[in-house]
Design a protein around this nucleic acid. Structure first.
Lengths: 223, 223
DNA sequence: TAGTATAATATTGTATCCAATATCCACAAT
DNA sequence: ATTGTGGATATTGGATACAATATTATACTA
């Protein structure tokens, strides 16, 4: 995206990690499930080596847990940990948002508008994956002016975690409608340099998803 | 530490990663330096495989940078990135501190006191590595009551980054005395449940280190 | 029958080998 | 002098082979 020409085309572990990540995020690999290197190696028709690298990457992202001589399993979070993930999102995103606002230029605003329109236009049925991606892209664009690479990398990881549970339990419809207005407001307040008002919206925005999600997961797990 | 009996004894990549991390933190491996798998393999008298795994781990921690077919190098941060690291520490530590205070018990306070004493003892010994470790342990103990595993893991990584630069310059840093006092105050305010006052101290505490450090690194790099 | 020891199997960890890619250097062309 | 090309060398990436460890199944003892 933007201008970052991807010079080094991605390596085997990269594509495998991407695929595995998607499989975890869309719930094909369930939480707690153990992952067998050999099985994956056969599946992707490569040796176990690139699989191991891919798993290590996902371990670093927090999607997979690696134990020493016992292999990998898909991470399963407790309810309080899921809550924590969203609290982390609030913490980091609010920080980025507030830092970004004073630095935003018309270019930033344009880009945000563009993504926002795409998002609202793309009523492709119920493609949660695509919507989630656009959603991240939008938030990311909103914070771009803060120019905080490290914080952004960090946010990506946290967001990935939250996205997993969002996608597992919430349909696009449940998410999109209330989010739509929030997203507009976040942009408007940013343009008007109304940091405090924007901050409130952002906090509410994430908190709403958090609570919705926790309810659903709690009832589901109670069974 | 606490109760965590390390059941699974650490694997080869673990010990290698630990050693490499220490070598980076204490400056034996300089920033920007490229790391040759083969050389390390010979050095540790193992094959390149565990080296690769160790490097991957350090890459996840943000201490080394892995590029696709070109190997690893010790990460070198720009001045603004170093500033960002400390801002992240402030963001996360303040959050943890404020959440912890209302939940702290006498046990927590005891443990903090104990570490504090050890720490002040190690001032005199001039053991920089040990001091850094104790410093982290102290902050960690201070936030333990918040009971936020994910946030703590995150903080560890951020702290590791900052510690690297702190240790590079600590020998010449005159920050010990004020730091000592800050640490006492953080504990006192926590015991008195004075969150706002504590927050201020914490922010000042980290900010002071940040500014001092940025000055030193700036002048050093200007040469 | 429950529990424990032991053997068989499966799975992960490490080493070695070969392939792919990048880096370096000499040399030619403009 | 600068840029470009080709090949030699070094270094990383991946596959296979073997070793170490964990898991499961089996047999044995109390």
């Amino acid at each position: 995206m933007v201008g970052k020409r991807t010079i080094a085309r991605q390596s085997l572990p990269d594509v495998i990690a991407d695929d595995l990540r998607e499989r975890i995020l869309n719930g094909e690999l369930l939480e707690g499930e153990t992952i067998r290197q050999g099985a994956l190696a056969e599946e992707y028709d490569v040796s176990r080596m690139p699989i191991r690298e891919a798993l290590k990457r996902l371990d670093a992202e927090g999607l997979v847990q690696l134990t020493n001589n016992r292999g990998a399993s898909v991470v399963k979070h407790s309810l309080s940990e899921i809550a924590e993930i969203f609290d982390l999102r609030i913490l980091v995103e609010v920080d980025l948002y507030c830092r970004a606002i004073p630095a935003m230029t018309s270019k930033n605003f344009e880009r945000c508008h563009k993504i926002l329109n795409e998002m609202e236009a793309s009523y492709d049925a119920d493609d949660v994956a695509k919507w989630g991606e656009l959603n991240y892209e939008y938030h990311s664009a909103l914070y771009a002016a803060a120019d905080r690479t490290l914080t952004n990398d960090l946010l990506r990881k946290v967001y990935l975690q939250s996205d997993r549970y969002v996608r597992m339990h919430l349909s696009v419809m449940q998410q999109r409608e209330p989010a739509k207005e929030d997203h507009r407001m976040l942009l408007t307040f940013a343009q008007d340099q109304k940091i405090d008002e924007g901050r409130t919206v952002l906090i509410d925005h994430i908190t709403r998803t958090k609570n919705q999600l926790l309810d659903m997961i709690a009832t589901k797990r109670a069974v």
